[in-house]
């Protein structure tokens, strides 16, 4: 197979130069942010920028805005002053892993629920008419705000030997935020094949389930991937915020609160878990992007459609 017949979009996707350019752009973006930070810190007024009484830009003191290099150096030194203490990056990394696990569990549950909802709505028109408004409405209920309630409901659950763990409440909230984009995206994707294809499958005498598996599911990939990415981001945000509001130990949410409390004495330390949370979000979105890479052939529809 020669490359000259490839559609332009595919050729673009395959060339290695693109990866190089993208990584350079990414690094450049980070550098730019660091530069802006230091530039404002250098040139901005000590008291920040005020409009009337409202401060629209922060103070430029070392307390409010530590130097970039200080924050990075802080990551390398010990979490506490104790000589046996782990370096800060390790503590943050460990906590990020815990949160990642919880968010991943929430994501998986959310994806499963979202897909199931989409299939039910696809199968029965009535279900679509009656369920879809509720799916949309569900996102106006800020479950995150009720995180402590969810936790106490969970604690009261008794299912034989099964015991509800606190982390499950956090995962539940993460999944609550994750299922919505999946349900909506999957439904659109499953409905995307034209009648022509549907009739072709009918002419083959293929039933509903196999039509879903062989036609509708593959056709939904271009719709599903952005939905899964959004779900991943939502799950991470949901998990971190729910950790904060339920006070769950071990995750990055807890570290955020804890180190922010120490910010007056150790301002750079508070930025550790913030970087951790950013990296966590990137890793989560990146995992979905990797998944998208393996499904490249299913995205060919994007080129022609």
């Amino acid at each position: 197979m020669t490359t000259d017949g490839l559609a332009p979009a595919l050729r673009r996707r395959r060339s290695p130069g693109v990866w190089l350019r993208r990584s350079l752009l990414g690094v450049g973006g980070v550098l730019l942010v660091a530069l802006l930070w230091e530039g404002y810190k250098l040139l901005g007024p000590e008291e920040g920028v005020l409009v009337g009484d409202a401060r629209v830009l922060p103070r430029t003191t070392d307390l409010a805005m530590p130097h970039v290099w200080e924050m990075l150096a802080r990551l390398a030194s010990g979490t506490t002053r104790a000589p046996s203490a782990d370096p800060l990056w390790f503590t943050v990394g460990e906590a990020a892993l815990v949160t990642f696990g919880i968010a991943a569990a929430g994501w998986l549950v959310g994806v499963a629920v979202g897909m199931a909802l989409a299939l039910v709505m696809l199968r029965w028109r009535l279900a679509q008419a009656s369920l879809l408004p509720w799916v949309v409405l569900s996102q106006t209920v800020p479950l995150i705000a009720f995180a402590p309630l969810v936790r106490s409901w969970g604690a009261r659950l008794e299912l034989g030997a099964f015991e509800w763990q606190d982390w499950m409440s956090v995962a539940l909230i993460a999944s609550y935020l994750a299922f919505f984009p999946v349900a909506v995206g999957a439904l659109r994707g499953l409905e995307s094949p034209d009648t022509l294809h549907a009739e072709l499958f009918r002419s083959y005498g293929v039933g509903w389930w196999r039509t879903v598996l062989r036609l509708r599911l593959p056709a939904s990939v271009p719709y599903l991937l952005p939905a899964l990415r959004l779900a991943a981001a939502n799950a991470v945000v949901g998990a971190v915020v729910a950790e904060v509001s339920t006070g769950l130990q071990g995750g990055i949410g807890r570290l955020l609160v804890q180190f922010a409390g120490q910010a007056s004495g150790d301002p750079a330390k508070a930025w550790g878990p913030i970087f951790g949370a950013v990296v966590l979000g990137l890793v989560a979105a990146g995992s979905v992007a990797l998944l998208g890479g393996t499904l490249r052939n299913y995205r060919r529809g994007e080129v022609s459609a």
Partner: peptide, 12 residues
């Protein structure tokens, strides 16, 4: 066997 005006091939 059936064929329509559009080829209707599965792009993937």
């Amino acid at each position: 066997g059936i064929a329509f005006q559009q080829a209707g091939l599965l792009p993937w």
